[in-house]
């Protein structure tokens, strides 16, 4: 059932773009509705039924606004930054295993690619912040870099732990290994490593930090840095950053689903399919929204302390434990 190569590519490019676009637009709606419900408000109600057309109205508004490059800003880098932030997020979609046969480009190094592209968005925010020629933006850019450097390490340690268990970088293969019921998912593989749920929590925290989501939204920190690196962006420049944030959340949650929660595998062993993947994905995304609207922001150094003093030691510990257990317990 495979299409010839060029058509296959075009189909997946279109599919990924549509998926990212719709997700970005409707996650904004979900976020706003969700936030409203957490705060006992109705949320957007005016544009379309239940405010469902609100994202479209927002997009039209953002598109129709002038792109302002502040005087004194580095015009090239300033315009480049939104492109740089969006591109890697889109590319990562190529390797996400939505279903058993639903991957744009199954790759033997899919996980590596996802992790590698995942860290480019830091550079984009740095570029945007630096090029804006705004003090708040520069502070924000500096924060983003140290934050992401700090969280890349525990994230990768967790990924390495997982690699030792799965023995492959192919995301589809990783999911396939988790077939046969929820007890076979990586997060519950307690016989390989009793600390697997902890590993998952670390991965999730790092994911929040990597995507600059609350409570780690140091980059935006609206009550401190106005809008951080995005302060000077108007119109679609801002819109792209905004979309990229949601695209990154989707990528991050999709990775968490594939790595820990068994991807498209059904929790009961039968009836696996893309539906399960999406369900798990959106449950995770809901959790991200839920966390954002529950907690206050962390301190900046508190965030670094959390990474260097807690997450890295623990993830190193689980890495060590897993290697020992793999060596001695499983033949």
């Amino acid at each position: 059932m495979t299409l010839p190569e060029p058509y296959r590519l075009a189909a997946f490019v279109l599919g990924a773009l549509a998926f990212v676009g719709l997700n970005a637009a409707y996650l904004v709606w979900v976020e706003r509705k969700g936030a409203a419900r957490f705060q006992r408000r109705p949320g957007p109600t005016e544009v379309g039924p239940e405010g469902l057309l609100q994202p479209i109205a927002d997009a039209i508004k953002l598109l129709s606004k002038q792109v302002i490059v502040p005087p004194g800003a580095d015009a090239l880098l300033f315009r480049l930054a939104p492109a740089v932030v969006m591109a890697p997020a889109l590319m990562t979609f190529a390797v996400l295993p939505f279903g058993a046969h639903l991957t744009a480009r199954p790759m033997s190094v899919g996980l590596l690619l996802a992790v590698a592209f995942g860290s480019i968005n830091v550079m984009a925010i740095l570029l945007g912040g630096w090029a804006s020629r705004n003090k708040y933006a520069i502070i924000s850019a500096a924060r983003v870099v140290s934050q992401n450097v700090a969280y890349e390490i525990p994230l990768l340690l967790v990924v390495i732990t997982l690699l030792m268990i799965t023995g492959t970088l192919d995301l589809s293969e990783i999911v396939r290994q988790q077939a046969g019921g929820f007890w076979r998912w990586n997060v519950f593989k307690l016989w390989v490593n009793p600390l697997m749920p902890v590993t998952f929590v670390i991965f999730f925290i790092c994911l929040l930090a990597e995507t600059n989501r609350a409570p780690f939204d140091m980059a935006e920190a609206e009550s401190e840095l106005v809008a951080g690196a995005f302060t000077e962006y108007a119109g679609m420049g801002f819109g792209v950053f905004f979309m990229a944030e949601y695209a990154n959340i989707v990528v991050g949650c999709a990775l968490a689903t594939a790595l820990f929660l068994g991807g498209w595998q059904s929790p009961f062993g039968i009836g696996s399919g893309v539906g399960w993947f999406l369900l798990k994905l959106y449950l995770l995304i809901f959790t991200v929204v839920w966390i954002r609207w529950t907690f206050p922001r962390t301190q900046f150094y508190g965030l670094l302390n959390l990474s260097w003093k807690i997450l890295i030691p623990i993830s190193l510990g689980t890495l060590g434990l897993t290697s020992v257990l793999l060596k001695f317990i499983r033949p």
Partner: peptide, 9 residues
């Protein structure tokens, strides 16, 4: 927050 989520606005 989750308990608040299920209460009416």
């Amino acid at each position: 927050t989750l308990t608040q989520f299920f209460k009416p606005p």
